[in-house]
Nucleic acid binder design. Sequence first.
DNA 1: GCGTTAAAGATACAATATATCATATTACGA
DNA 2: TCGTAATATGATATATTGTATCTTTAACGC
Lengths: 163, 163
Amino acid sequence: MKKQVNPKELDVLLRAAEVACAENGARLTQRRRQVLSELMQSSSPLSAYEVLDLCNRSTTSTMPPMSVYRILDFLEQQQLVHKLSSSSKYVACAHIACDHKHFQKTHFLLCDGCSSVEEVDATEEASEALEQMAKTVGFKLTTQQFELSGICTACQDSAGEGL
Amino acid sequence: MKKQVNPKELDVLLRAAEVACAENGARLTQRRRQVLSELMQSSSPLSAYEVLDLCNRSTTSTMPPMSVYRILDFLEQQQLVHKLSSSSKYVACAHIACDHKHFQKTHFLLCDGCSSVEEVDATEEASEALEQMAKTVGFKLTTQQFELSGICTACQDSAGEGL
DNA sequence: GCGTTAAAGATACAATATATCATATTACGA
DNA sequence: TCGTAATATGATATATTGTATCTTTAACGC
């Protein structure tokens, strides 16, 4: 579903993304901008083919699947987009317009109800506890990204409404 | 790769699986047994099609992909097999022959080096910390399974060898 | 044995992802 | 500004993963 993002805000986000790319010596081309824009306007993660359809619907030209995958990879490298490996879907980074850096581990909370996603930094406690747990079997953690399912506030509330 | 599982031990595991099925009013048929057996003998998670190939190589008859998926679903329901959603691969449960129950949340530690997997119960601290973290954005966690990457002891050691 | 149910086979196809070669666009120095 | 190298995209084919559906076979309860 489409998220309510006003055009002005969207523009701010896209400009910020452009700057971020420039800082890495990369370019946010029209196609990349288009892909990113679709993800920014979605209230839930999208599969590569969903992105493809949206792009092909919004312009006359048609893009092949390969291009979408390439562009998604690029956007992921630029940390403008994250790939959720549990569902093979993509979300726009929640921190494009702020000065947030991906220093800490990132957790994605996926709502079972409405498919929305919250991107949160790992707390010190969580990082610590997970590392300790891994240590008990000799593992040294490398994951930078965790995906957890749950029920978001809105869905918890609306579940109660029926009563 | 094949894990070193001696035939006797494998048999014990399969018998235990059979009993577990029976307790749920289900049957561990030949096919199901075959699929489970391949997973038990693998040192790393296998994709459905990898399981399929192994099964079709080890007998004269050939099984269609559909059957493997059905059987993997069945084995998952019986908690004899776990599906790793981050890689769409399957592993035999580490607790088939012991009286372990899946009460706590389960963490799978995936080694980046050798692809081996460790299945461990969540510590109280980790569960607590993750739930707290989710709570800060209003999420109520439902995930029962977590997948973390890292480097296992063996691979940490062998990385040092080259020096 | 006979009908009911559960399991497996067969076939087709949908969804996800990559390999590779060709073309277009951009950046940039001569 | 022109040529060239690097980057980005297009086009095509194909690999991989997963499902839908219908048929056949096997097991079980009576």
